[in-house]
Structure formats: structure tokens, C-alpha cells
Design a protein around this nucleic acid. Structure first.
Lengths: 198, 198
DNA sequence: GTCTATATTACGATAGAC
DNA sequence: GTCTATCGTAATATAGAC
């Protein structure tokens, strides 16, 4: 019963979700157990009963965030259309731009990067993402949808970097405009290499 | 005498430099006055004599970092060559990739973003950078060095985003490779729009 | 200007009652 | 499983001697 996803989530569940939110908003260093407990409406005891401490709880939160993101992006990249279409779907994916990427954010957290266990999900997510986009691009080249001269791995890295960097620009400016411009610019450059079907 | 840049930097100077380093390494939230004082080899009194507190010292550090970056990048963008050459010089600029961007980093610091005064230098730096690159691209279009169909502002945003996002990918992976790939991919896409001078 | 207390609050974790 | 002490350390700032 405690593992079933009933109408009221368990305490452990609330702790993980609160931690996910706070890691996104404030990062690992900026997130205190106290803040987590308040948001989750739980006491000290609950947290240390379900988890060994802050790093353990953060790990659960990070893993879930990474898995969720991977699943969502996979859906877009596996969707219909040509390779440029599918990469375009990823680039134009609906986002809360000013909040930034919950995974990419962790990259700036010294304590996360210093811990191999906390860091692994972050590393794996971007590794998978670049690899998957490179596959889509390579398939597109085989199908004649995309200029065969492009290096799939490099182009995939560019695509992911545009998104991650777009967040930085948007947050710096306080508006999503720069993100949209970066994506538009990238799509223009990429589309120029798409095989025209007139 | 105290304002002259003599052989031994003053205490205030050392405090600012130590803060710059720590902001880069650990961010604002992750940087304590104590850590700053230890690195600067100074006591509590010195810091609170020269600055009103952590935010004030951080402001001095952030402003200097922003100015320095702007000056360095301006030198590259004002350099010789065609517009794609000069943007390429920016993209290929020597960097300690795994350390990331000392300005872009602050974008992930909730306490910096929440304070308009601390945030201003970050905003201004990226605003200037995108604008300056857009100018270079527009000039290149007038000179026939670059495809006139490209939107300078969007393309500039893409270029800056690739750099900022490249840092994210590199830090996630623990190697500069992904950064280099992202830059290479972007240059390939951009160069395809450069006017060929055969 | 710089130093050493000192103060106050928060962090992160533990203990033990219920 | 959850709660409320309680603990030791660190964060940030102030006070006042030198």
C-alpha cells in the first residue's frame, strides 16, 4: 500500500519532489534540509528515516529529474518527420525558459560535480542526449534528409549547447527572448543543410 | 600611494581577487566570507572595513570580471579578418573550458539574480556581447562576407549560446571535448554561409 | 587599517520519546 | 514513521582593542 501511488503521496515522495524543486530553483549548495522539510511539510525525523542525509535525498531527486527529462526528450526525438523536423521539435520544445534546465543547472554546483555519484546522472543525461540527436541526424543523412557533409556528433553537440546556452542568455536578460533567438538562429543554420523537397 | 598599483597589491585588492576566484569556482551562495578571507590572507576586520559586507564585495568582484571579459572579447571581435573569421576567433578563443564562464555562471546563482545590483553586470555583459557579435555579422553582410539572409541578432545569440552551453556539456562530461564539438559544429554551419573567396 | 572576540542565526545530523 | 530536543560547526556580521 505504501508503494502504490495513491491519492495522497507518501512522505518520502513529497521529500523527493520538494528536493527536485529546490535543486532546480536554488541548486544543491543553496538548498538546505530545513527548506526541503518545510516545503514537504515534514519533520527532521522523516527525512533521516527515509534517507541517510542530504546527499542521499539529492541523489534520488537528481535521478528522477534526469530520467524524466530523458523520457520527455526521447518522445520528441522519436516522433514523426524528417531528422531536421525532429531536432527542431527538441529545440522548440515547450519550456519554462527562465527556470533553466534542471539537469544542466547541476553542472554549476561544485558539490554535485565533486561527488561522482551525484554527478553520474548529469553526465549520463547529456551523454545520452548528444548521442541520440547524433543518431537522428545520421539517420537523416542516410535518408537523404540532411547534408551528408555535416558531422552528426559535432552538430548534435551544437544543438544541445544552443539550448543550454540559451537558458543562460535568457536568465541573464530576464526574458526568454534571447533563448528564442538562439534557437531560431540555430534552426536557420541547420535548415539550410536540409535537403529541400520542393 | 594606496591607489597606485605597486608591486604588492593592497588588502582590498586581494579581497576582490580572492572573491573573483571563489565566485568562479563555487558561485555566490557557495562562497563564504571566511573562505574569502583565508584565500586573501586577511582578517574579518579588513573585509568589513573596505566593504559593507559580502554583497558589496561580490559586486566589486563581479564588475571587474565582467569588465575584463568584455575587454578580452572586444579585442578578438575587433581583430582582423572577415566577419566569420572574427566570430570564429571568439568561438575558438582559448579557454579553461572545464572552469566554465565566470559571468555565465552567476546566472545560476539565485541570490545574484534576485539582486538587481548584482545582476546588472551579468545582464549588461551578455547584452553587449550579443549586440557586438550582431554588429560584426551585419558588417560582414554589408561587405559581402556573409549570407545576407541570416538574421544577425539571432545568429549572434546562437553563437553566444553555443559557447555558454558548450561549457555545460564539457562540465557534465568532465572533458572539454563536447565544448570543442559544439564549437566545431557551429563553425561548420556558419562557414557554410560565408561568401566563398576561391 | 587590521586584529581578535563575540553574537546570532542557519546548517546538517543525531537521539530518543511517542 | 514521525516528532521534538539537542548538538557541533559554519555563516555573516558587529564591537572594540590596538
Amino acid at each position: 500500500m505504501s508503494t502504490a501511488n495513491g491519492p495522497s503521496a507518501g512522505t518520502s515522495e513529497r521529500l523527493i519532489e520538494s528536493t527536485r524543486e529546490l535543486l532546480w530553483e536554488r541548486g544543491y549548495v543553496g538548498t538546505s534540509p530545513k527548506a526541503i522539510l518545510q516545503r514537504a511539510n515534514a519533520g527532521q525525523g522523516s527525512m533521516y528515516h527515509h534517507f541517510t542525509g542530504k546527499p542521499d535525498l539529492a541523489l534520488a531527486a537528481i535521478r528522477r529529474t534526469a530520467e524524466e527529462m530523458r523520457a520527455e526528450v526521447a518522445r520528441l526525438l522519436d516522433g514523426p518527420g524528417t531528422a531536421p523536423d525532429r531536432v527542431g521539435a527538441y529545440l522548440r520544445r515547450e519550456r519554462d525558459v527562465l527556470k533553466g534546465c534542471p539537469v544542466g543547472r547541476l553542472t554549476q554546483d561544485p558539490d554535485v560535480m565533486a561527488d561522482p555519484v551525484l554527478r553520474a546522472p548529469v553526465d549520463e543525461t547529456f551523454d545520452w542526449l548528444r548521442g541520440r540527436i547524433a543518431e537522428v541526424l545520421a539517420e537523416g543523412q542516410e535518408r537523404g534528409e540532411l547534408d551528408a557533409a555535416l558531422d552528426p556528433a559535432a552538430t548534435a553537440a551544437t544543438v544541445v549547447a544552443v539550448v543550454q546556452g540559451g537558458y543562460v542568455l535568457a536568465r541573464a536578460a530576464g526574458t526568454p527572448d534571447a533563448f528564442d533567438q538562439a534557437v531560431t538562429g540555430a534552426l536557420t543554420l541547420l535548415t539550410a543543410h536540409a535537403t529541400r523537397s520542393r
